[in-house]
Nucleic acid binder design. Structure first.
Lengths: 246, 246
DNA sequence: GAGTGGTCTAGACCACTAG
DNA sequence: TAGTGGTCTAGACCACTCC
């Protein structure tokens, strides 16, 4: 418990102490020293081992909790957040039914194969052109009806160990599997929503007429270290995308 | 400077002190005691006059700043945020061009008339059926081309003093005018995005073929006091809606 | 009862802004 | 130079969880 903060020359580093502690703790999480579900040492212990005040550690931990990296529970401790936890569950799922209720569709992977990245995927993921990705085609269903059609690209060295049952319903969300199988935690995402006339293949999958207006949602997801880890295009005709602007 | 917090019986109120301070300060802003642009008393003064520690006031002010109610500047003080400030400017504008760049279109009100609220508007705004609203039709243009078509409903006693030049470009965003003319500060909004085939009137306005797939964005905006103050439907064929999920 | 995070206090020093 | 918010420290007490 004698890990020290890498203290830089104070002239060089104008960064506040609590940010340095934040980054230091995040670093230990990124490297896998603390796995999802693990409890960190208590605030007291961290403060003592780092040689800073309790309040400084608290602020760093509060910001990690704010960013969804960590979950704090009074009386228990501070744990690295799992994507399967209740708190993380709906964070990245923004589609709602006509009545505004959150939908929990079943996900089924229709196809998974290694292929060259398409131009847009390579650009978004920061890969060299035609780098290898794992390409997934996926449907989300409610009550036997397909509501969402997804095309997903995952950079391949990173996701080589992803273990997917093709053609049957997944019990877990994909992000839970990313974390469990490949040690990839999705920390942040950027969505872009455009209108589109349903392409033929998508229309057939969703059971609508080709050309029907649909939502096309392009997502780029980023890991804890800020690197892009997923390119996803979701298409839906019957669900709305909900955003709260606070 | 002898304003006291309304201290309730400690058995009844389990609410933390800093939340009580937060609500107390927000209340004084809502009533207009501090206008947008006004500086609040310093943390020291507030803490002294409320009889609480500096850290407690700081936490309350930090949360008001987080919520976009207030803006803090080192050396200056803490001021009630204006919608015209740089910080507030893009908070509620989420449409971007094909290249991902934020667009700053010009807004022009085509029509403004008092009318009965439509069913959906009345429900969203919490009005009695067929209550009176100010109905606006508006276009947002870039380079002479209409990119967004909007239908806006504003509950009428509240927005009676709204002063809008019809048919010419607006120098300010609408929310700035809400705040300036009517004392209404938009603090929060909920957007729902659906796909739609462009209705005839909208298609003509946007210069596209009727039936073209477009985005239909329904917004309900809320004031500082949590009451719904605006119902807005924006339609666009050429812009994307951008969301960052942190 | 021991240990954890949540709240509240008190005071010091620094960085920035303004006159 | 005076006043502001930003950072950092130190310590107290409480609410909650678990054994």
């Amino acid at each position: 418990m004698s890990k020290d903060l890498p203290r830089a020359c104070p002239a060089v580093t104008a960064r506040p102490l609590y940010q340095q502690v934040h980054d230091y703790l995040l670093g230990r999480i990124v490297t896998g020293e603390w796995q999802p579900g693990d409890y960190l040492p208590s605030e007291q212990r961290l403060a003592a081992s780092l040689g800073v005040a309790l309040g400084t550690v608290r602020r760093a931990l509060d910001e990690l909790a704010e960013a969804g990296v960590v979950e704090r529970r009074q009386g228990r401790g501070t744990a690295v957040l799992r994507h399967s936890s209740d708190r993380a569950r709906f964070r990245f799922f923004r589609l709602v039914g006509p009545d505004g209720a959150r939908i929990v569709p079943t996900g089924r992977v229709l196809a998974a194969r290694r292929r060259a990245a398409r131009a847009g995927e390579a650009r978004a993921l920061g890969l060299s052109p035609s780098a290898l990705v794992l390409g997934l085609t996926r449907e989300r269903r409610v009550g036997g009806r397909a509501l969402v059609h997804e095309t997903i690209a995952l950079p391949l060295p990173l996701f080589a160990r992803l273990d997917l049952p093709v053609g049957q319903d997944l019990a877990e969300e994909l992000y839970v599997l990313y974390q469990h199988d490949c040690g990839v935690t999705v920390a942040r995402a950027e969505d872009r929503i455009s209108p589109e006339a349903a392409p033929v293949a998508v229309a057939r999958s969703l059971g609508i007429a080709p050309g029907t207006p649909i939502l096309r949602i392009r997502r780029i997801a980023f890991g804890l270290d800020g690197v892009a880890v997923e390119h996803r295009i979701s298409r839906s005709a019957r669900l709305d995308y909900a955003v709260a602007i606070e």
